[in-house]
Design a protein around this nucleic acid. Structure first.
Lengths: 297, 297
DNA sequence: TTGTACGCGTTATCAA
DNA sequence: TTGATAACGCGTACAA
């Protein structure tokens, strides 16, 4: 074998054994660290079990997500990782013979296996924290919510928390744009034009939060004294800033590893965990929120 | 077909047609935006040609890189994307029947197809720029150079440029640590202990540069008035900072797309470009380097 | 222990 | 145009 440089033929092996030794994942994009980090962890765990990983992207388009998933199933993936739980019905139908798991989302009553956390509860809790500090006018900078259950759940969490305290998040206080630093900057500029303007701004993810922070610095707005800024997802650098942001970090790597474990257990016929509840890392790494200034009422 | 929900069997198709319709890539890690961005662009381009992408990581370990590459070849990838050109000889031998391309590196006289830029020349040029401003004491914060030709080429470029001007980069002025924000912070602390301490610090990549910047802010060191900091790779956020960093951006997405085009042309029997020279985006996005302070001689 | 034959699902070829 | 058939390389089962 060595002399001839023999290499097994994966296609023939897969055809005969009915096992491709390949898993698949469809994510919105690799340009966001949270998804890249999950894929990294997933791949590492799979490599330890001699599985390879096919990666496809949806670009936040549910139709494209289904097309890509179909391609992966045709390639013979033994399991599929998805992001969120808002998928086209055709996609779910496609997966009747293939193990799959939704990530970045957790709903106790879900019909689908999921590994994640409760996005709605996460923003609900951070909003409660800010209300407790005395904030009553909130703004939100959100990703595009259409077809993105994580983004819309995060908006819903803020809104629900405020309504609990007889406050509200009117539609004009939500600046919704695609993920980018520029969107974050524009969001702060826009929210400052409202009268009265918000004393607390919650950003739907890390990129938007970094943009919002950059705009505050550029405009000489003190964070968190003048505006309390909150960011989500992956903000390691923000923790080194002075002052650091109030953040909630998402355990992307742990989700990837858990998703891998779940799918591997499915194909090896081990017990069905069905739904793995992964608590989010709800530790507010840097709680730099402040009470609103007296004159801002 | 529709009624029965027929799906083609990729393994059988690949076995019979001798075409898997799958490409592969082995990168150091997805945790760095430059690699994730390249994979993103590569995947998008391949998806347009109905190809899927197997992604594996080496964790900066050349042995692991070879193992992962072997696994991908056994899976039947029709082409393979690698990072750098310093690979184990066994890996190159493995690829005698599989098209491949090295990325993030460009050498005109290379025996191997490559898509990238000249890392040595990039740091050479930015060093010349700083020398032109009057800097004569340099420090460098570098990634681990063992088995990483991009990192060692970048150090070599700084050193060569300084020697051109009868200056030098002594070993103790190079702080070499794994990529992390913390390493960048420690690097600045370390280099400041040297006497005399450097007036210009060149960071081998973006993560180290962000750490270095965070440390300068925390220690009250003015950038670039007191120390000129230079970062490489992916520093979009740094451009929004005040003051912004002096940076050289790497065209990761374009490299991914070009690598895809090259491999697709190989498998479709089109002309062999062999070596695609991609100039780095050498535009110094923000040239905030300053002359050293008079009393720092 | 070593050897031989069959079938996995597709595609290419050849015959009708 | 349509339909039957062989072969891709491996893994398993059964025979020697």
């Amino acid at each position: 074998m060595r002399d001839l440089g023999y290499m097994p033929n994966g296609a023939a092996r897969a055809l005969r054994s009915l096992r491709s030794r390949i898993m698949g994942i469809v994510i919105p994009t690799l340009n966001h660290a949270i998804y890249a980090g999950m894929v990294e962890a997933l791949q590492q765990r799979l490599a330890g079990s001699e599985y390879s990983l096919l990666v496809a992207t949806s670009e936040y388009d549910l139709t494209r997500e289904e097309q890509q998933a179909r391609l992966l199933v045709e390639r013979g993936v033994e399991g599929l990782v998805l992001v969120g739980d808002n998928h086209r019905p055709e996609l779910y139908r496609l997966l009747d013979r293939t193990p799959y798991v939704n990530t970045y989302v957790y709903k106790a009553d879900s019909d689908h296996p999921c590994v994640g956390f409760d996005n709605r509860r996460a923003t609900f809790e951070i909003t409660e924290f800010l209300v407790g500090l005395g904030h009553c006018r909130f703004g939100m900078i959100s990703a595009v919510t259409a077809g993105n259950d994580r983004a819309s759940d995060r908006v819903a969490g803020v809104r629900a928390a405020l309504e609990t305290y007889n406050l509200s998040l009117p539609p004009e206080a939500v600046y919704e744009r695609p993920y980018s630093i520029l969107s974050g900057r524009e969001g702060v500029r826009y929210l400052r034009t409202l009268t009265p303007s918000p004393t607390a701004i919650i950003c739907g993810n890390d990129v938007l939060a970094m943009g919002a922070l950059a705009e505050c610095r550029a405009a000489g707005i003190s964070v968190p004294d003048e505006i309390s800024l909150v960011g989500f997802d992956n903000l390691e650098f923000a923790a080194h800033l002075d002052p650091p942001l109030t953040t909630m970090e998402v355990p992307a790597a742990e989700m990837g590893a858990r998703a891998a474990d779940f799918l591997l257990s499915q194909v090896s016929g081990k017990l069905d965990l069905h739904s793995v509840h992964l608590e989010p890392n709800l530790i507010v790494r840097r709680t730099t929120g402040r009470a609103p200034l007296p004159d801002s009422r």
